[in-house]
């Protein structure tokens, strides 16, 4: 038989296995989310549990978000000016910078950075707690680890992400302003006026924030799940951390496309 034909069943079996594994994973994650939601009562009754995690998830990501936002703003200012001046419409620099940031780059880059900074930290932390039997110890102490450890981190991530995205966007706009107005010399009035005329609070700012909220849920959920589900050894935790970055990044980009098409189409 032709070797190519011979290989077809194996390929099909591989694809099938891959698909089944994907569905299995999706089911597990959904179930995990449900568990978190059911056991969220403790987190809201004792809000300091969430505050504490907001500190670790949010404040620790703040520096990287601010620095990245500033540089992305610089680059947008330079590139935007370079292109716009060919059409003699440098005044539109403000609206270009602001729209790119508020609609796309703010939510997406923040989510990617968040996955790398906070997501991995969450996975590693939960994974290590599992590997060192801290989660088991908690269970045997009659303290539900989902309620006590996972849920507060989940809500902290969900709360922090839109905040970080807003900070990223505003710092980015400021970066664009520095390059465009201060360094290159675009008219300051036109920069802000065009921006305000072109950016709609509901269509652009709010949609951007909705995106970042969805990304916050996604990234935090994946990070926590991978940590909670990891093989409890040093190698297992390392793998889970890698998976967090890979899966979150791909999911963010795919979801971004879906959400954007919804927002441009329907709203």
């Amino acid at each position: 038989m032709n070797p190519v034909v011979k290989a077809i069943p194996d390929v099909l079996r591989g694809l099938g296995g891959w698909a089944i594994h994907g569905l299995w994973w999706l089911g597990h994650v959904s179930h995990f989310l449900l568990e978190i939601l059911i056991h969220s009562g403790t987190s809201f009754r004792r809000f300091n549990l969430i505050t504490r995690e907001i500190y670790f998830v949010g404040i620790y990501s703040l520096i990287i978000i601010i620095v990245s936002g500033l540089f992305v703003g610089f680059v947008l200012g330079l590139q935007g000016y370079n292109t716009l001046q060919k059409y003699a419409s440098e005044q539109a620099l403000g609206v270009l910078v602001a729209l790119s940031l508020v609609r796309e780059l703010g939510p997406v880059i923040t989510a990617l950075l968040f996955a790398g900074r906070a997501g991995t930290a969450l996975t590693a932390e939960i994974g290590l707690m599992k590997a060192t039997e801290q989660l088991s110890a908690m269970e045997i102490m009659a303290v539900d680890p989902i309620a006590r450890v996972v849920a507060p981190r989940f809500w902290a991530g969900v709360i922090s992400m839109p905040i970080l995205a807003a900070i990223f966007s505003i710092v980015g706009v400021f970066g664009g302003y520095i390059v465009g107005v201060v360094l290159i010399g675009v008219d300051e009035g036109a920069f802000w006026a065009q921006m305000q005329a072109g950016v709609d609070v509901f269509d652009d700012v709010l949609n951007g924030e909705i995106k970042s909220l969805v990304f916050g849920v996604t990234v935090t959920l994946i990070a926590l799940f991978e940590g909670y589900d990891c093989y409890p050894t040093a190698e297992g935790v390392a793998r889970a951390t890698t998976r967090t970055v890979v899966i979150s990044s791909l999911t963010i980009l795919a979801l971004d496309f879906v959400l954007t098409s919804f927002m441009l189409g329907g709203w």
Binding site: G58, I163, I167, I170, V173, Q196, V199, V201, E209
Partner: peptide, 23 residues
């Protein structure tokens, strides 16, 4: 610190709405 963080977020959102957007 968590309070400062959330406050910074609110300020950023406010600026996005007022300074960048058309609110």
């Amino acid at each position: 610190w968590a309070g400062i963080f959330v406050f910074a977020g609110i300020v950023a959102l406010f600026m996005l709405a007022m300074k960048v957007g058309n609110l």
